[in-house]
């Protein structure tokens, strides 16, 4: 067992543990914090996959921005039902979806077992950010601009949606 595998196992365990805690925690804020753990471990996995820039973005956007936004969302709404919330175990749908998801994972396992790509990119970690920058501003410049417009529209839309209705009247 090499060090690489050990690191992967640790990170993967943390990620799945975070996800399971999120599903089973009783308080909303605990769920969110458990998920931040998952996000961080995924960032670690990105580093393992020679994607340092994406890892940084992951930490910034997910663990940072989106989590903070979700916390704001939680704080701005009331959660009286937290304590009383029935867990998914109690509902038939929970069982149905649970069984389906286990089956789904099983099918995926069978399929992934049969995959063999062979090739491995050797030089992704060399000047990773520069490579991304070159690619983004040469080959993918138009999608890049489009995505920025999407972001702009989404934020304006979010502001409009969240605005109090009294203001418009």
């Amino acid at each position: 067992m090499t060090g690489e595998v050990m690191i992967f196992l640790v990170l993967a365990t943390i990620a799945i543990f975070g996800a399971l805690v999120m599903l089973n925690a009783s308080k909303v804020i605990h769920m969110l914090l458990a998920l931040v753990l998952t996000f961080l471990s995924i960032a670690g996995l990105y580093v393992m996959l020679s994607a340092e820039f994406v890892a940084v973005v992951q930490v910034l956007i997910y663990s940072g921005a989106i989590s903070i936004m979700m916390i704001f969302g939680i704080m701005l709404t009331k959660h009286h039902h937290d304590a009383k919330e029935r867990t998914y175990r109690s509902s038939q749908r929970g069982w149905l979806v649970g069984v389906a998801m286990v089956l789904f994972f099983g099918i995926m396992y069978v399929l992934i077992e049969g995959v063999n790509f062979g090739a491995t990119a050797p030089d992704l970690h060399v000047e990773n950010t520069k490579q991304i920058g070159l690619s983004l501003y040469s080959h993918y410049v138009i999608p890049f601009e489009l995505v920025s417009i999407v972001l702009l529209v989404a934020f304006i839309g979010a502001i409009l949606l969240a605005k109090r209705e009294e203001d418009t009247e």
């Binding site: 749908r93 979806v97 389906a100 998801m101 089956l103 789904f104 099918i107 069978v110 399929l111």
Partner: peptide, 20 residues
């Protein structure tokens, strides 16, 4: 919406099973 989603999910799994 969640019921509908569950139906879609279960349906997808069934289709995948058949495919497998």
């Amino acid at each position: 919406v969640q019921t509908y989603g569950a139906m879609v999910g279960v349906g997808l799994v069934v289709l995948l099973l058949i495919g497998l």
